[in-house]
Nucleic acid binder design. Structure first.
Lengths: 240, 240
DNA sequence: TTGCCGATGTGATGAAAATCACAACGCCTT
DNA sequence: AAGGCGTTGTGATTTTCATCACATCGGCAA
């Protein structure tokens, strides 16, 4: 079966080839079977909005494939990107569990395949199985952990250069551990969006990247960044 | 029984008079009994450090009485206060559940009474009872929620005035719903610490507070702030 | 009382970065 | 090829704030 956006749809979580390395997908078969029965699988094109901040929680979204931009925004129009979620992550989990409104807006930036589970179904599913419930607690803990890292980056780094350096290092470390001396980062966001991730302006990002290139710390190969001097980048991230 | 710091120690969670209105304390009696058996109750003086960021998680800390300052800090010495936790909150929960290091440092700012539970005991306790496990998931969700609010404040507000206004409003809203037209906020932090909460400098906080007083938005009564013009404060927080 | 010390108030100065204003580029559509 | 549009590059100007440097204040202890 092929989705309207040219992707294969993975029919079942039981046979999904990604199962092993995903946080939420490696449940025991019995639980997975129960999950199968309450989930709705959908394919989304790029730019689809899964949910909007302040909405009452409708349920959870499990990314099977693709990536999703999580953002918050202010009445005055400013927006900030909290993170880019990848396959295997569960979105809207905390809102669904606590019943409070979604705290972020989720929008696909790729064609995505996503499993949706309605709130009531999900809560029943949770309360039915301690293992599932514990898994969810673990997942929530990880989320909390990453948000704390985000806060640390935002709050403790007072220069934009430092924050950008941190972001680039984080991206390069995620991008396959294969990175030898010259890790590469495929840029998937515009300068504007990068600015929204580190709380600065578009122009500042452009200028900082230009500076890094001038100092031979970065290099561009099309839309891919090559980190030529990782040590210098680390210096910028730590110190200053 | 009286602690060395002049406080009554509440002997048992079963008879604790605060039980009803606390997030984690309103478990069914059976679970509470199990909790009783694995907890260690301790009284701490002001300034005691419960745990330090990056430490391996030893277990959870449930505040029965008092308040605790949660902070992160950078190698360069800068520190940022993430939140002030009050009675009823559980600290170190996400680290204990996920096994990752504590993401913040916790230090008492009052004399406190605190229940500690060792990590292994706590995990057993969790896995033994879906209700407990679900409760923990809920609690984690709430934590996630508040951290997101924090991020929104830090990342979306680009002026210090805006962040300070937001902080004051949040404090005044927490401080008893009794607040009529002129809510009061008891200042428990120094200007330095307030600065660390909103990511600015001590002098800026002093100046901003002075400005607010000059514009008749605030008034000081000893160490208590009186918000005389809530609308104006909201304006500052929202707009700008 | 005196002296000390941490917290607070306030001016002067400089650095970082937001903002504005355009130019240049790449890419897609017509 | 031409035009349009979103993205990127760059200079000039202005704002905000950090930082330094003191003055002052208030409590606490000797």
């Amino acid at each position: 079966m092929t989705s309207p956006y040219g992707m294969e749809i993975v029919e079942s979580c039981l046979t999904c080839k990604f199962r092993a390395d995903r946080v939420f997908c490696d449940l025991p078969p019995s639980a997975l079977q129960a999950f199968e029965e309450i989930k709705y699988t959908t394919a989304y094109p790029e730019g689809a909005v899964l949910f909007v901040e302040h909405q009452a929680p409708r349920g959870i979204f499990l990314i099977c494939r693709g990536s999703v931009k999580m953002s918050v925004s202010a009445p005055n129009g400013k927006t900030m990107i909290v993170k880019i979620a990848e396959a295997g992550e569960v979105l809207g989990l905390s809102a669904t569990v606590s019943g409070k409104p979604y705290e972020v807006t989720a929008e696909t930036i790729d064609p995505c395949q996503i499993n949706f589970v309605k709130r009531e179904d999900f809560l029943r599913f949770l309360k039915n199985d301690v293992n599932v419930c514990f898994k969810v607690a673990e997942h929530l803990s990880e989320k909390y952990h990453t948000v704390c890292k985000e806060i640390r980056c935002l709050g403790l780094s007072h220069s934009a250069a430092e924050k950008l350096a941190k972001l680039l290092l984080e991206w390069s470390s995620k991008n396959g551990e294969s990175s030898k001396n010259e890790p590469r980062v495929k840029l998937r966001l515009t300068h504007e969006e990068i600015a929204q991730m580190i709380g600065t302006s578009r122009e500042t990002v452009t200028r900082l990247l230009a500076d890094l290139k001038k100092h031979q710390i970065l290099n561009t190969r099309g839309s891919t960044l090559v980190i030529r001097n990782q040590a210098a980048l680390r210096e910028l991230a730590e110190n200053n």
